[in-house]
């Protein structure tokens, strides 16, 4: 089956002050119709840059896609011109952003912000587009949409604004919705509402979602498949169950252990010691090696290949090599996953 979106060996770099930061280093991903793929990782792991690359929104200069392919319905978006990308953005692939407080233009009525894309992509007359805006606001659960469509962003609360941002993203029935930390800036109760909304919209419209997050709680709630990124690389991918119940990469273990648990007896939150690698001088071997409690000599020197563990699970770790000592995941993981 052909994937809706397939990323092959993507490399993105930023040339800043004479040094080159390799933010994304050989990422390969697939996204199927109607599924939700979560890309998980800490700040600076390259997850947002990957999503921006899909949208063609890498600011150039200083950024550039150095190599790789982004195949959307079989067509390579990397070679698309500015004009061609404008026809993809908002229409085929949409994006919702982290901070709804700043993602909307403060001086434009939200109705107008919603229909801008419609007018551009579907050459819809304004009066029709307005009705569509009201429909969209109803769809994302904004009460009294007839009236609110003419209001300004400052008249909405944070959660309501994020609904508006989602309405904007959904306006043209995109195939793919990229959600870059859509709940990070929101209250916990609102977070759940927004995630429920995304799930419901996906069920109704069969949109594929790429969810960028560092919040494993969000991932457990919504994702079908998970890709764990670290140091500009994907270190492990698998189905939600595989990542939560049979993780094989020490970084995934670390992520799962650092998740707070209700029934845990430990008084302190688990943290992964150390900090992420400097991507202007990326390590030769596995980027996680300096922080990995199981690191071997080979880890420092060579990047491991992706070991195929199942149809869906791939893990890049030397521990999975036949010659490596057998290591059991830490206590906290085996108990975890509730």
């Amino acid at each position: 089956m052909e994937h809706l979106l397939e990323i092959k060996d993507l490399n993105v770099q930023f040339n800043i002050f004479g040094s080159t930061v390799q933010a994304v280093r050989g990422v390969s991903l697939q996204l199927n119709q109607g599924e939700t793929l979560a890309i998980v990782g800490e700040s600076g792991s390259g997850k947002s840059v990957t999503s921006k690359a899909i949208m063609g929104l890498i600011p150039n200069p200083p950024g550039e896609i150095a190599s790789g392919e982004i195949l959307f319905q079989g067509k390579n978006l990397v070679h698309y011109s500015k004009k061609q990308m404008q026809k993809i953005r908002g229409k085929e692939i949409s994006m919702i952003f982290q901070d709804p407080m700043t993602a909307l233009n403060p001086t434009m009525r939200i109705g107008k912000q919603i229909i801008e894309g419609l007018i551009k992509h579907q050459s819809m007359p304004k009066s029709v587009a307005r009705d569509r805006a009201v429909e969209l606001l109803t769809l994302v659960g904004i009460p009294n949409p007839e009236k609110r469509v003419d209001e300004y962003p400052h008249q909405f609360s944070g959660g309501m604004r994020q609904r508006v941002v989602i309405a904007i993203a959904l306006a043209c029935h995109p195939n793919i919705l990229i959600a870059d930390e859509p709940t990070t800036a929101l209250d916990v109760t609102i977070q759940a509402q927004i995630l429920d909304l995304l799930k419901e919209l996906q069920r109704k419209r069969h949109t594929s979602i790429i969810l960028i997050t560092h919040d494993l709680g969000v991932v457990a709630n919504i994702a079908d498949r998970v890709a764990v990124m670290y140091g500009g690389k994907i270190v492990e991918t698998g189905t939600l169950d595989e990542i939560f119940y049979q993780p094989k990469h020490p970084y995934t273990w670390g992520l799962l252990s650092s998740m707070p648990k209700l029934h845990s007896k430990a008084k302190k939150l688990q943290a992964i010691p150390g900090s992420p690698p400097d991507l202007s001088d990326p390590p030769q071997g596995c980027p996680f090696a300096p922080r990995c409690p199981y690191a071997m000599k080979v880890c420092q020197e060579h990047m491991p290949d992706q070991a195929v563990l199942s149809d869906t699970q791939r893990t890049a770790c030397w521990l999975l090599d036949d010659r490596a000592p057998k290591v059991e995941p830490p206590e906290t993981i085996r108990a975890g996953g509730e």
Binding site: M55, L57, K82, K83, M85, Q86, K87, I88, R89, G90, K91, S94, M95, F97, D99, T102, A103, L104, N105, P106, T107, M108, Q113, E116, G117, K120, H121, V165, I168, A169, A171
Partner: peptide, 23 residues
Amino acid sequence: DYIVTAEAKGLASSAIVMKHGIR
């Protein structure tokens, strides 16, 4: 951020500057 939102809608850069930038 809202300029990025406008870009993500697929608007042309001239439209972004005129409608979202200048005002």
